[in-house]
Design a protein around this nucleic acid. Structure first.
Length: 182
DNA sequence: ATCAAGATTACCT
DNA sequence: GGTAATCTTGATA
């Protein structure tokens, strides 16, 4: 598996999919951030392996879920090789399938304003809420389980824009946030 | 044992 | 633009 920097860009345009018993929900990944063990003080893995960040140190393709601010879950895809603490935070999606289900989970109603619709999955914790991803999914193998990444329509190639990562205080200068521009 | 900070969000002015 | 909500982790003693 490639580095987190590389993976963060490769994931743009792919689909994050979760199949539950009665439905499938999916969104196209349009915003990501790379985190790495070395040279990146903002990374959970910067000070080495712990119980919490263990999944970051696995080889690429595992789901790393963490709980933060006492409220929110965020999900990442582990990157790089075994022993290297690297991952990509999924920050933004374009809703594709199972939108009603996402709305229900986010707003516990099926009637929403345009504004709410626009804010459905445009943040890492919002995605976890809409997909019902939590610590029980931490360490899940994205190759064999009910949450996975699907290759999208290759026609939809965006220009990739790099920028500063959101919500961090250290290593702010790194341009490791990637967005898909139409 | 204690404590500060946190890869966020929603709601307020 | 500011802030409360809310709790776990990791660092320090």
């Amino acid at each position: 598996m490639c580095s987190s920097l590389e993976l963060a860009q490769k994931l743009l345009g792919t689909y994050l999919v979760k199949s539950d018993s009665n439905f499938v929900i999916a969104g196209e990944i349009i915003e990501t951030e790379a985190y790495d063990q070395f040279g990146d003080e903002a990374s959970h893995s910067f000070r080495g392996k712990t119980k919490r960040n263990d999944v970051m140190f696995r080889s690429g393709g595992y789901l790393y879920v963490y709980f933060t601010y006492g409220v929110h879950y965020c999900c990442n895809v582990s990157a790089d090789k075994e022993g290297r603490g690297a991952a990509v935070l999924i920050r933004g999606l374009k809703p594709l399938t199972g939108i009603d289900e996402m709305i229900k989970r986010r707003y516990s109603t099926n009637k929403v304003t345009e504004k709410q619709k626009a804010n459905l999955v445009n943040g890492p914790a919002k995605i976890c809420q809409a997909f019902n991803i939590n610590m029980s999914n931490n360490g899940l193998d994205l190759l064999t389980e009910n949450i996975y990444i699907a290759r999208g329509n290759l026609d939809s190639i965006y220009s990739i824009k790099a920028s500063q990562r959101i919500g961090i205080s250290k290593s702010k200068d790194l341009l490791w946030r990637f967005t898909a521009d139409v």
